[in-house]
Design a protein around this nucleic acid. Sequence first.
RNA 1: GAAGUCGGCUGGACAGUCGCCGCGAUGCUUGUCAUCGGGGAGGAAAGUCCGGGCUCCAUAGAGCGGGAUGCCGGCUAACGGCCGGAGGUCGCGAGGCCAUGGAAAGUGAUACAGAGACUUAAACCGCCUAAGCGAAUCUUAGGAUUCGACGGCAAGGGUGAAAAGGUGCGGUAAGAGCGCACCGCGCAACCGGUAACGGAAGCGGCAAGUUAAACCCCAUCCGGAGCAAGACCAAAUAGGGGAACGAUGGCGUGGCUCGCGCUGUUCCCGGGUAGGUUGCUUGAGUGGCCAGGUAACUGGUCGCCUAGAGGAAUGACUGUCCUCGACAGAACCCGGCUUACAGGCUGGCUUCACCA
RNA 2: CGGGGUGUAGCACAGCCUGGUAGUGCGCCACGUUCGGGACGUGGAGGCCGGAGGUUCGAAUCCUCUCACCCCGA
Length: 140
Amino acid sequence: MLAVLADALVSPSKSNSCRRWDKLSMPAEFDAVFRARCSSGGDLIRVLAKTNACLYPRLGITVSKKICKTAVGRNYMKRVSRELFRKNVEALQGLDLVVLVKKPFNSSDYSQYIAEFQAHVERVQKCRNSCVSSSAVTST
RNA sequence: GAAGUCGGCUGGACAGUCGCCGCGAUGCUUGUCAUCGGGGAGGAAAGUCCGGGCUCCAUAGAGCGGGAUGCCGGCUAACGGCCGGAGGUCGCGAGGCCAUGGAAAGUGAUACAGAGACUUAAACCGCCUAAGCGAAUCUUAGGAUUCGACGGCAAGGGUGAAAAGGUGCGGUAAGAGCGCACCGCGCAACCGGUAACGGAAGCGGCAAGUUAAACCCCAUCCGGAGCAAGACCAAAUAGGGGAACGAUGGCGUGGCUCGCGCUGUUCCCGGGUAGGUUGCUUGAGUGGCCAGGUAACUGGUCGCCUAGAGGAAUGACUGUCCUCGACAGAACCCGGCUUACAGGCUGGCUUCACCA
RNA sequence: CGGGGUGUAGCACAGCCUGGUAGUGCGCCACGUUCGGGACGUGGAGGCCGGAGGUUCGAAUCCUCUCACCCCGA
């Protein structure tokens, strides 16, 4: 049952060349991810995840004005986060992701940020399994 | 060469790979698609401090109220901006700074200190006792000297942010623009200038100061709200029920009144508020040349097209070079102001030093 | 995008309009009271009023610029 569902989720992205990701825009979608309580925290960022019903992963980014006062800095952090998200789309199928920036960083911290993001992606995979099993339990 | 002063320009460069957001063309599998081509943040994009355009409200009207500006002339779509000039003030100078109209239109304020603080005010210490008065002494008399009160004075001290010109000579009992000389000040015929203002014969013994970024007066200007303005398409639902009031009422409409436009109004129950397209970038635009003007700027002509998103697009890596890269991201659009900013390039002028 | 407000002692606020002495409550310190503490009483310290400039004889107060923080509307 689970395998069939996963195949149905993955197969169109393999065969079709459609767009493979989307953004979170509504506050209610953010709240849903926060309530799922599957998170992975680090020095620079905190990543929250939740399974979704879409055919592609979705991303939401939060950078508060307290972290970085200038729009240039905030835009940089969001841009870099989006790029890494796109590079890891294959690994994040069927997930809603929220990236919470905790500390400011710039281009000199880029390599550190890459390593941390990759670690978060792997940890979030574990969270997905628990989430999926729990959702399966509740659905049955 | 050093120091200074006032501007102007610029805001890492080149090549490659992988990515991001629109646009155009092509393809077919008509898509949240692929390929190719071309474009992709600033001098401040910022603060939102002013002024406009644009949109709706009436073609934006009248009065009161409120606000803004404030030497003069010009530029401009407009401005609290800019340019030129005048005055004041600081600087050896180039230059800097100045909300710089009115205090004999009126109302207020001027604490504390001080004798006295504003209808020519006041006398604490002080100076004087001339004339008139009283007393004492001397004197033959006339009178002289001393003291006192009444009184005179505003020179000096002292207080204060401010005490009603300064210096000198005369004058006087002591003094005082009381008189005179010079300086300062006020008024000013006349002359120059578009004007602000400048010069100035002459006149006046000299003025109740300061504060209008206190109220105020004068002059000029200002209707309100803002692209989530507004326009169009349009799914679904509703276009019903009950009660009360009564067209000098309600809404648009903003501080108020008038006026204008629309319209029965209010309360309760029920229903409903989606989404998309557009506004959205060719404009008071910009580069060269010519002409006018001291300049800001204006006119003519030839060329150029230079982001347009909708939770928001420029990054990462590699190589080379250098001075090793600051402040920082368009959100309807322009003109300014203000603030932030690693540096680099460049021009005018001033002072000092040296050489010729 | 537009509109509005607040910065004053360690904390919460007055004072600003109408310029001249910076005050109130809690807290802090000392003393008294108590066997000791709390409460109470008496006394005291602590602020160049967010920053810069201007007007004025004089600015927390008036004006201009600026920096933080907060609230509201669509």
